[in-house]
């Protein structure tokens, strides 16, 4: 036996789904149709991304004369659009800025959410109920109504046009959801596990680190993906708050600007857009086994 104490949860395999779907006897026919319908839906949903990819790979002349599907009929591909996008549109810089916004935002949201949720579930302090209610209130507050006062405040404090300013805004407005989501999950961790840890002599901090964090990993991954996507896809906040910055514009702002111009043609825009889609796509796919488990894990404690 080993005396090292592995902390990791081994990769959960999503086989349970594959097994349970076809085994329902008389309803197999209906289920098969349902599966077909879902697959058709997924294909339909994926079409725009396919169109985007194909368009970004077609020569400019083709794009002007025929639809994207012709790329499947008469294949002729070029990397020219990507080179143009990276070279003339400074897409690499934009992607960099977007990452510089999204990654710290995501890390902060996940970390602060799990700490906040733990405190709300496990710790007794004055005003806990009030704080929980405030959280719900913040959940239903539309961020738009805060834009004007916050922008003025930012200008006053010199936060406008800085990346930390965007972190602050996005973290602030994702945190209520994050705490809300994780609170539901942490509340489902059986009371006995905490008592067990208490009996075992673990301190509060130790319990948090050795019990709560590893157990919450799936839901934290889910929250991380969502926080990243929201931050990455956000146009409004960077558009308003990054004005006057010397840095490359975030990808969403850059793309939105490009749509307005027609001089560059569609090709480089498609290439740039595809790049902006590809990064979150890779992230979601690589973390999706956690994502699925995280959603289930929040609903029923396995």
């Amino acid at each position: 036996m080993s005396e090292t104490i592995p902390q990791g949860v081994p990769a959960p395999r999503p086989v349970a789904f594959a097994r349970t779907v076809p085994s329902s006897g008389g309803r197999t026919g209906a289920l098969r149709w349902l599966v077909h319908a879902v697959v058709a839906f997924i294909v339909l949903w994926f079409l725009p991304i396919l169109a985007l990819l194909l368009s970004s790979l077609r020569p400019q002349a083709d794009t002007a004369t025929s639809g994207w599907w012709m790329a499947l009929v008469r294949p002729s591909y070029t990397a020219e659009n990507y080179l143009l996008a990276l070279d003339q549109l400074r897409i690499a810089g934009s992607l960099g800025t977007s990452l510089a916004i999204a990654i710290p935002t995501t890390v902060l949201v996940v970390l602060l959410s799990v700490i906040g949720a733990y405190a709300l579930v496990r710790m007794n302090f004055a005003g806990r109920t009030a704080l929980s209610l405030l959280l719900v209130a913040l959940l239903v507050t539309p961020p738009q109504i805060t834009l004007v006062p916050l922008l003025r405040l930012y200008n006053l404090m010199g936060l406008s046009g800085t990346i930390p300013g965007i972190w602050l805004y996005q973290v602030g407005f994702t945190l209520p959801f994050g705490v809300f989501l994780l609170r539901g999950f942490i509340a489902l961790i059986p009371q006995e596990l905490f008592e067990r840890a208490h009996l075992d002599g673990a301190s509060e901090l130790r319990t948090f680190r050795s019990i709560v964090l590893p157990l919450s990993r799936p839901i934290m991954a889910s929250l991380g993906i969502m926080a990243f996507l929201w931050s990455w896809n956000d146009l409004l906040i960077p558009l308003l708050f990054m004005g006057g910055s010397s840095m490359s514009l975030p990808i969403t702002v850059n793309l939105a600007g490009m749509v307005a111009q027609t001089t560059q043609g569609q090709g480089p825009l498609m290439a740039a857009t595809f790049l902006s889609v590809a990064i979150p796509l890779v992230l979601v796919i690589s973390l999706q086994r956690y994502f699925v488990r995280g959603i289930l894990g929040g609903a029923v404690k396995g």
Partner: peptide
């Protein structure tokens, strides 16, 4: 309900209190 730590192996479960 045993209150085993679900993310720890049997050995780690048994040794946790000693580690603490």
């Amino acid at each position: 309900n045993y209150a085993l730590y679900p993310h720890k192996t049997v050995a780690a479960n048994m040794g946790f209190a000693l580690r603490m």
